[in-house]
Simulated assay, not measured.
Amino acid sequence: DTMLGFLEEMKAYQPDIICLPETFTSYGSTSGTSYGDSAETMPYPSLIPFQQFAKENLCYLICPIIIMEDGKAYNAAVVIDRQGRILGNYKKMHPTIGEMDEGINPGPLEPPVFDLEFGRIGIQICFDIQWRDGWESLSKKNPDIIFWPSAFPGRTLIQTKAWDCSAYAVSSTIKGPSRICDLSGGIIAQTEFWNRNWICAPVNLEKILIHTWPYVRHFPDIKEKYGRHMKIETFDEEEWTILESLSPEIKVRDVMDEFGILSLKEHVERADRAQQKYRM
């Protein structure tokens, strides 16, 4: 009921997607039951009111709960679409020893992505942030946003994952600040003392992180042609630049193709292939 109350507060902002904290339905429970004992099977009864909320408000919801599949319990995040239907789930790849002692199983080592009409999202959960494999796997699938429901805030950890994956990174936690991080790792918004329960902020998915050199040679031509419709933000010490379209008619990837610019990930992958060739 408390979480549904928070969702009611968010309605005025007409969010496209909301991510709730890790295992929010069982957080703080004093029933004495283990995680495994509280696992839900489809259709996940505790999520019925959240499905109704998603349908009534035409938004996506990411609901982290304990689920049971094929006789095994998982710490998972269930994705609900704008019609209140369950799209699928992500199962925590790296549960803690304490979780496993209480019946939680590690999830598959290949995390899924979810293609929504506004972009591609991925999910990692809490302790997953201590491993690189899940984040690297998601990064190769080029998500626009990676959501991280967690039991702890992980400030610099989640900021690092944003630039490392060249994606927005969004944390959701009951304990400590939740954050929305830009591709550069910069904090766009976060909960704080006078706004503890939730945050909402717009993000522009027409942004791509690139390596500044050698593409900086094209920046004057981009500015001359597109003017205020393209934003070029350079981070001198990191040798990064973010290209951002400020016009709905201009796709940043089209501009990059026009000037032969690769994303940071593509630039590094090309160098890696060349290095392998020269090692032969």
Rank of each mutant, 00 (worst) to 15 (best):
S166I: 00
E99I: 11
P143V: 00
Q83H: 10
L262D: 07
P248I: 05
R132I: 10
C200W: 03
I242M: 06
I18N: 02
A76F: 00
D133H: 15
G5W: 11
E249F: 02
I86L: 14
E136L: 13
R82E: 14
P106F: 05
Y44F: 14
G32N: 09
T23R: 15
A54W: 01
P202D: 13
W213S: 14
S247V: 01
G88R: 01
D16T: 08
P220M: 01
I67C: 06
A274F: 12
T160H: 13
K140T: 01
G154C: 07
R120Q: 04
N195Y: 02
M230R: 01
Q51L: 02
T191Y: 00
I210T: 13
K207S: 11
D81W: 05
Y74N: 10
K141G: 14
R179T: 15
F259K: 06
G5S: 07
H229N: 15
F24T: 04
I104E: 07
R82M: 15
E237P: 01
Y74W: 13
L7Y: 12
M256A: 09
K92E: 15
P95M: 03
I199W: 00
I222K: 07
E258F: 10
P220L: 04
G32D: 07
W131A: 06
V113H: 09
A77N: 06
L47E: 03
E192P: 02
I188V: 11
A54K: 01
C59T: 14
K55T: 01
F152C: 08
P112R: 10
A167C: 11
G28K: 02
L262T: 05
E22I: 13
I180L: 15
N57A: 02
D70R: 02
I158H: 13
S38I: 14
Y226A: 13
D128P: 01
R196K: 08
E233C: 10
A77E: 08
K140Y: 03
S46F: 02
T30G: 06
W148E: 10
T96M: 14
T41K: 11
D81E: 06
K277E: 15
R270N: 10
Y27F: 14
Y215F: 15
M256N: 05
K161Q: 12
K92M: 09
I250A: 00
T2L: 12
D164A: 14
I65N: 12
E269H: 06
W135Y: 12
L61R: 02
M256T: 03
F6L: 12
W213I: 13
I222V: 12
M10R: 08
E136W: 04
T30V: 14
E239V: 12
R179P: 03
V203Q: 04
V203L: 11
A77K: 05
S150I: 05
F259L: 09
C19K: 00
G227I: 08
G227H: 06
R270E: 15
P45T: 04
P45Q: 03
I208E: 09
I121C: 15
Y13M: 05
F6C: 09
T2I: 04
E258Q: 15
D182R: 10
T212E: 08
I188T: 06
G5K: 11
S29F: 07
W135C: 09
